[in-house]
Design a protein around this nucleic acid. Structure first.
Lengths: 230, 230
DNA sequence: CGGAATCCTCTTCGATACTG
DNA sequence: CAGTATCGAAGAGGATTCCG
């Protein structure tokens, strides 16, 4: 017996403080990165697993269970023919976006050069875009991009001075861009010019003019001076 | 031998992602709460220890060492006659404020009613004020409050439509308020009216009129609808 | 007395193996 | 594919001790 015993009560800081309570919920290892990926849309177990190298299957399962328990995510079964189980953020989970973005803005100062142990995870860039998005530069642009990185497909949509990014195939993209994650990284850090990336064949453009990539980079790529404002 | 060996390299997610890097730095247990308290100004070891019930002396010392290593805090020796060692945030540490505030705004939804295991830590409220501060209501007000909670002294300063909170004795406060942490909590959640708190003797006002507390509460206390904006 | 280092126990993590 | 089971390694928590 005692099959399901030993719930042992999740660890808490036991402070009546919003920050402490928030940490009680998302302070465990991997949790916020899980949320980061889910900000781009519903994902299957294996999608999450492959997007978080090193997490270990038991931890992923455990975290998903906890997040479901705290109401940040919910399990859904996709309609046929897919029929697979996916995890998606609830409203409470989506509400974490400002905190994730704020942490990313701050954490950017520690990026430095990629270390040999670092892996570049495509999803991170599409969440990062939300933090660097330049509304000024995007004014008046309405455009939907389909960006393919490795075997992943993302939608980047500019409309009404707002940016949305998600992991899915857009229904009717204005342009379709294919590149590897290293090229995405180089473009995001403005280490290579869009025109050069195209010329070298590092970015393939289907359906759309060459200027599309330049517009995209201008609006969502990192700026040297990220966090000014003393 | 191997006295100091086994540095073993701090644990990292090894993702070239700003969120992941940020978590590498402040993702460990207690770290962000430490930063939260330090946002109110330099603190001695024992101040931090008493403000973080349950941290354990070894963990606090360890975290302080790590944070100094990552450049978030620095040790300083106060000039005589104090002469004590204090820890204070560097610019990189201060830059965490938006992330801490964002997490607090989100975490507030999990506060609910205080649990019997919860402790109310005074510092948390003065950091929280930064997140709920209503610039509209503060327009045109220039006032400095000295707020005494238990044996702690805080400065809340309104000026130029901006709010600053810190743990120190203001040089020339417009009003001096003394209360216990339960009263502070009740006022912050608007569970008691400032006038009632004064009438019941739960708030003692020295130097300043009775309206001072009402102004303060109007501007820094929580609003029922914290995070709207769908 | 403030500021830690040490020791010990318990929990969590991380990796792999295994099962419905 | 979606997890559970297992187990050694690392980290957390508490008490005590040490140093200046």
């Amino acid at each position: 017996m005692a099959t399901r015993a030993a719930k042992s009560a999740p660890r808490s800081y036991d402070q009546y403080c919003a920050v402490a309570r928030g940490l009680d919920v998302i302070g465990d290892r991997w949790t916020l990165l899980l949320v980061r990926d889910l900000l781009l849309g519903p994902k299957r177990y294996k999608d999450l697993l492959s997007g978080l190298p090193g997490i270990g299957t038991n931890l992923l399962a455990g975290r998903l269970r906890e997040l479901e328990g705290t109401g940040l995510i919910e399990r859904t079964v996709l309609p046929p023919p897919a029929g697979s189980t996916v995890y998606q953020l609830t409203e409470a989970g989506q509400a974490l976006e400002p905190a994730v973005v704020a942490l990313g803005r701050w954490g950017a100062r520690f990026l430095g050069q990629p270390r040999k142990t670092d892996v570049m995870v495509p999803r991170a860039y599409f969440v990062a875009m939300r933090g660097v998005f330049d509304a000024q530069a995007a004014a008046g642009i309405t455009e939907t991009y389909e960006v393919r990185i490795a075997d992943l497909v993302f939608e980047v949509r500019l409309a009404g001075g707002r940016l949305t990014t998600s992991e899915r195939r857009p229904s009717n993209p204005d342009s379709v861009l294919t590149m590897d994650v290293d090229t995405l990284n180089a473009l995001m850090f403005r280490q290579i010019k869009p025109s050069a990336a195209i010329a070298k064949g590092r970015v393939k453009i289907e359906k759309g003019d060459h200027k599309a990539l330049e517009r995209l980079v201008r609006i969502v790529a990192f700026h040297s001076r990220l966090s000014s404002a003393t």
